[in-house]
Design a binder for these strands. Structure first.
Length: 474
RNA sequence: GGCGAUGUGGACAAGAGGCUAAGUCGCCCGCCUCUCAAGCGGGUCAGCGCGGGUUCGAUUCCCGCCAUCGCCGCCA
């Protein structure tokens, strides 16, 4: 049985690195017909917030990948304590009565391994003090008297080995009786029969401790695959304080990214199909995913202070935007327009045609509500460069004439408009480009955009006539 | 400080003991064209962290160093 889990702790919003970890877990599960589990690691009562939990669900739901089973660690406390007890009774853990915060764990002198005296405290004294109600931390008794190594094979980083002598006596239970991350996570991984742990490389060193816990619990450790970290251009770990919106997936959602395109982008950070493909569908990603394709070096998210969006992410989004089925895109555009207070002036068929015309030069969903405002509303700004097109000699007058002719013509299509426009240009001895570019400026307020005749068709006769007339009037 | 990892162009990222070290993004130029994109064509950017060693030959194997990252919490 292949079973993977994504285990976020609700102490902040969904970080893009976490999102990527979720995605890689999901891809592996789907690739091998496994089960994807979402486990909320909320054992740190002090720092958990509902807002954070909401934001994590928001982010995951936006990615749209889904999961098969869901758990919450705080509902599994009984199992965690049972696991702690089992380890204690095996003699693999001891009580540490050192008061919280009284130790100085300075790294300058060397690594902290354990509190002297506590590890060797006689059982009777330990029991007596515990019975008397003295608070204690339950620590794992890492075997270090004799030479021993902890080993495991990481699917990404290869064989790993560390002497137990270098592993500190980490905590299993806090003095308030709550399990620590290490204990809760491993106990749950055993209970939930997790077969593969895929997580950030920041846990690589912790894995040695986890192997010890798994062994004490009498369980075979799962397979491990650690992922390189996502870092800032200066190599520093991505942090909310220093890097702001770059680290939150909601930034990309709010910037008008397509969920699938963003998933695609995240996949390419630290993983490659090795065959030069960049734009990939969900199915292609599933079929191509493997840990062999995962890189070992941290991946830089290439953003700037002024612009949180990685240029490659934007490019990839445009590729998906331009090639995805129009019937999938149209509803997303509609939602975007709704959000911007814009209404679709004609029917769904018109929307689809118009979206198709526009998307060839758009990058995000946001563009439909901003750059394409003139297609959906009558109040749109005239850009300075567009004004330049209108202020060519004779332009306004000719556009006004064109408007009158189009109002009176029997047909209104790309072809008929083009014929009418070229005929007018020929009659007056001006280049068609004068009218073509002028019309685009008058109809959209922009100097650039789709083929002008496609614009005429998209704007529709009534609005075309009105806008051309308005330009002449000015 | 100890331990664990990583180091190919601005970013992503292939690669293999030996042909001119892929590709993508970005940037620049040209073609096309009613504009802008797209598309097509071309260009820019690394000799593979540094120093040794092995080898006929190493960026690829070995050693040392340096740099960077991670862990060393009663956070996860």
């Amino acid at each position: 049985m292949i079973r993977l889990r994504f285990a976020p702790s609700p102490t902040g919003y969904l970080h893009i690195g976490s999102a990527r970890t979720f995605i890689f877990n999901w891809l592996y599960a789907r690739r091998h017909g496994g089960t994807m589990i979402l486990r909320i690691d909320d054992t740190d009562l002090e720092r958990n917030t509902q807002a954070s939990l909401d934001s994590i669900f928001d982010g995951l739901n936006w990615l749209g990948l889904g999961w098969d089973e869901q758990y919450r660690q705080s509902e599994r406390l009984a199992q965690h304590r049972q696991a702690a007890e089992a380890i204690f009774h095996k003699g693999h853990a001891y009580r540490d009565f050192t008061p919280a915060g009284s130790e100085e764990k300075s790294h300058a002198a060397g690594p902290w391994l354990c509190n002297p005296g506590m590890r060797e405290l006689p059982a009777e004294e330990s029991d007596r003090r515990a019975a008397a109600g003295e608070p204690f931390v339950l620590r794992y008794r890492v075997p270090r008297e004799t030479r021993a190594d902890v080993r495991f094979a990481d699917a990404v980083y290869g064989g790993q080995c560390k002497a137990t002598a270098d592993v500190e006596d980490f905590a299993l239970l806090r003095s308030d009786g709550m399990p620590t991350y290490h204990l809760a996570s491993c106990a749950d991984d055993v209970d939930l029969r997790i077969s593969h742990i895929v997580r950030g490389q920041d846990h690589l060193s912790n894995t040695f401790k986890h192997i010890l816990i798994f062994e004490s619990l009498g369980a075979d450790p799962p397979r491990f695959a650690h992922l390189p970290l996502l870092v800032a251009p200066d190599g520093a770990k991505l942090s909310k304080r220093r890097h702001g919106p770059v680290v939150s997936v909601t930034t990309y959602r709010d910037a008008g990214f397509l969920p699938h395109a963003y998933v695609n982008f995240l996949c390419l950070l630290g993983w490659s199909p090795k065959d030069n493909r960049e734009q990939m569908s969900r199915q292609e990603l599933i079929e191509a995913f493997s840990f062999e394709g995962v890189n070992r070096a941290n991946a830089v998210v290439n953003f700037k202070d002024q612009d949180p969006i990685d240029p490659k992410a934007l490019w990839l989004n445009s590729q998906h935007l331009r090639s995805m089925p129009i019937e999938d895109l149209a509803p997303m555009v509609k939602a975007e327009l709704d959000g911007a207070g814009l209404a679709v002036p004609y029917g769904d068929e018109w929307l689809s045609r118009t979206v198709d015309v526009l998307r060839a030069r758009f990058f995000t969903l946001k563009d439909f509500a901003t750059r394409a405002r003139a297609y959906f509303a009558d109040d749109f700004p005239i850009e300075p460069d567009a004004l330049g097109k209108l202020d060519q000699p004779q332009a306004r007058e000719l556009l006004g004439e064109l408007g009158s002719r189009l109002a009176a013509s029997s047909e209104f299509s790309e072809q008929s408009v083009e014929a009418e426009l070229r005929k007018l240009a020929a009659e007056r001895g001006v280049k068609a480009g004068l009218l073509i570019n002028g019309a685009r400026a008058a109809l959209t307020g922009q100097p650039v955009g789709p083929s002008a005749f496609a614009v005429f068709a998209a704007i529709g006769r009534e609005r075309v006539v009105a806008r051309l007339g308005k330009v002449y009037a000015q």
